[in-house]
């Protein structure tokens, strides 16, 4: 086993020990459940009625928002990289999406949209500027020598995009997707909690707060982390495969 892995394992065990000691010191399950209680709750929660539908509900909506932002971020990022006017036109929206607190958007969306669409929209709003900004940065950092070469050989724009710009966008896009997947879950679940979206993971967290069930709160939080990691890894795997496919063209 690698030295770093051993140290990480020791750190996790130490963190769990501290948590256990803190839970024992507090002495109230409803305020701070112990790691063992949370583990027990984790083992029971997935057997409950509606567990799968709750997970599918939130996962489907967070992923839909993420995917929409991914597509829109790439299309508009590429257009902005090519046409300065598009970048200027989008500038106020991107700045607003970045600067406005997510809670303000959630409340605004609750006025405009049904709570069931809320997660998709909020995940989109949070992910879009990250993908867009990174794609634009990737295009701007494309090697000028390669751009000059493709212009000299009069390479059509589509081919130029695949061969010259896409390899430049690739590291930025992979890094953006890795960051944005976690952000989509954080913002999406926050929206579900504030909007008390029926049948969502956010609703489960809201109920845990109302009924002071800290074991439920931790158990669902761990489920969110697991879903977030699975979504990120699966998406990055597919994205890397897609890039590899393009490179074999």
């Amino acid at each position: 086993m690698k030295r770093s892995t051993v140290f990480k394992f020791i750190a996790v065990v130490a963190a769990l020990l501290i948590w256990q000691i803190a839970a024992m010191a507090v002495g109230l399950d409803m305020l701070l459940a112990s790691p063992l209680q949370v583990a027990g709750r984790m083992l029971s929660v997935w057997r409950e009625d509606g567990f799968l539908s709750t997970v599918v509900f939130s996962l489907g909506r967070v992923f839909a928002g993420f995917l929409l932002a991914f597509v829109a971020g790439i299309v508009l990022g590429v257009l902005s990289g090519r046409f300065k006017a598009v970048e200027y036109m989008l500038w106020p929206y991107v700045v607003t999406f970045r600067a406005v607190p997510v809670a303000s958007f959630i409340i605004l969306c609750l006025i405009w949209l049904s709570s069931r669409q809320l997660t998709v929209f909020i995940a989109f709003l949070i992910v879009f500027p990250v993908i867009y900004g990174n794609v634009l940065q990737g295009i701007k950092s494309t090697d000028p020598a390669m751009k000059e070469m493709s212009a000299l050989f009069k390479v059509p724009w589509g081919r130029r995009f695949l061969y010259i710009y896409l390899p430049s966008i690739k590291p930025y896009l992979l890094s953006a997707c890795s960051t944005a997947a976690g952000m989509a879950w954080k913002a999406g679940v926050a929206a579900e909690i504030i909007g008390v979206v029926k049948g969502s993971i956010g609703e489960k967290l809201y109920e845990a707060k109302i009924y002071l069930q800290s074991a439920d709160l931790f158990a669902w939080t761990i489920i969110i982390i697991i879903l977030s990691v699975i979504m990120e890894k699966a998406f990055l795997f597919l994205l890397k495969r897609a890039f590899a496919g393009v490179e074999k063209l």
């Binding site: 390669m146 390479v155 081919r159 010259i164 390899p167 490179e247």
Partner: peptide, 13 residues
């Protein structure tokens, strides 16, 4: 284009 094959690099033009 470093990530692409020799064939692809020629196909580019």
């Amino acid at each position: 284009c470093e990530d692409f094959s020799a064939l692809s690099n020629i196909r580019l033009v």
